[in-house]
Amino acid sequence: MNAMDAKNFEQALDRWGSDLSDWPATERQAAEALLVRSKDVQTLMEAERQIDSALSALREHAVSSRLEQRILTRLPAVAGSDPAAGAYDGQWIWSWLSAKVWRPVLLAGVPLIFGFAMGFGLPDLTEQELAEQISMLALSDIYQEIDDAQQ
């Protein structure tokens, strides 16, 4: 068991209060031993107990019933959390879509939607136009090769 002096005792008192049952076992035993032999520490403990008792006395508290009425009568004037508000203004759709679960799904879906849009947006091509597009994509000049072959 560690020896405790008045300074350590006061620090422990600041930390855990005057109820020794709230103290860790080692510190409690040391404090009990010190309390037996030190008048100063006894005085300190007594002062702390008076403070705790005065703090406990603050729990007795009454509130006027008029205040309760005042709060309740102010309600209609305050825009409350009317459930219908969310349903009709369309905000619930956004809040549902932006919920954590759907956020990654939405993000993953963006390139997919972009791809579909590009695909459907392409014009119908003739056979020659299609060959040109493919040669462009292949980074080669198919016509040049044909010309070279013909020569």
């Binding site: 008045a6 006061e10 600041d14 930390r15 005085t43 300190l44 007594e46 002062a47 008076q50 403070i51």
Partner: peptide, 27 residues
């Protein structure tokens, strides 16, 4: 905050109460 608050209360009460708290606050 709790520790500093308790000590602060003890010291302030020691200034105004000439009793046990005062003796304790002077330590």
């Amino acid at each position: 905050l709790l520790a500093r608050g308790r000590r602060g209360l003890r010291q302030r009460l020691a200034r105004s109460v000439p009793s046990t708290v005062k003796k304790a606050g002077q330590q």
